[in-house]
Design a protein around this nucleic acid. Structure first.
Lengths: 144, 144
DNA sequence: TATTGTTATACTCTATAACTATA
DNA sequence: TATAGTTATAGAGTATAACAATA
């Protein structure tokens, strides 16, 4: 069991991570805005571009209330980026599916996320591998 | 000059960083909510607890419009966590200063940010040093 | 009866523009 | 005139509670 640490090294790493978070988040919003999307709309569209989902599942993924998703998908649908399709197996369920244009917007959005890739260019391949392994361990993922 | 990379290693690191960002952000909101604060209120209070600032400077730090700060500080002031003080040197300026209770709330908020420290407990000191240096280089900070 | 999605409501954050009081 | 802070307004995200359709 890990105990919380307050040594200067740990605190500096925490602060550095905070800086990464702030920069990443801010630039994600900017990238979304370049496509006239809010951050929430971009996150939902990006999610659906990987896999169409029922409204309720979107809320679970985004960790918010299902009622919020109604409005976000409404606005994406009004823009022609997403459409609701009835689920033949359960008529209560509506699947949110990206249109072709929505799929294209999601792809361009992903490509414009250079901000996240670009700073990694400062690192050598060995360093990126090291960083990957450290982040994996930090996040407690299985590292075979 | 760094060029954007799309190799699998880089993409995995980008995704890992995205996961860190999502987890950090989400848990920051939760920590704020435990003190009945919104994320924005917690960020402003945390900022002021380090150094009282004029309204305009807060907006610059948070990268938002000054008019938004009025409302956020209004709500912090209504809760007795912050007060506005006139700047004797320039009577147009109002300094936002944490009250004793605000200072105390900011401290407890910082302490409850275990989420950011705890996963680092998985790493040895050597690994944390390594991570620190990699993040520093990534962020382009001066590393003497 | 339980679940899915929606609606209604209230609050907060956000940007924009106009206003006030100082400088 | 220029700047600091505020007000007014409108749009978006959020949680809560109540509702209709379906299971």
């Amino acid at each position: 069991m890990a105990t919380s640490r307050t040594d200067p090294l740990t605190l500096e790493v925490v602060e550095l991570i905070g800086t990464v978070v702030a920069r990443y988040y801010e630039e994600y919003e900017q990238a979304a805005a370049q496509h006239s999307l809010t951050g929430a709309q971009a996150r939902v569209l990006g999610l659906l571009s990987l896999d169409p989902l029922p409204m309720r599942r979107i809320a679970q993924k985004l960790k918010c209330e299902p009622s919020n998703i109604t409005g976000i998908v409404d606005r994406l649908e009004a823009r022609g980026l997403v459409e609701r399709r009835p689920d033949p197996d359960d008529r209560r369920v509506k699947l949110a599916v990206p249109t072709d244009e929505g799929q294209d917007t999601a792809r361009r959005l992903r490509e414009s996320l250079d901000f996240a890739r670009e700073p990694l260019g400062e690192l050598t391949e060995v360093e990126r591998t090291l960083l990957r392994d450290l982040l994996r361990r930090m996040l407690g993922e299985d590292t075979p």
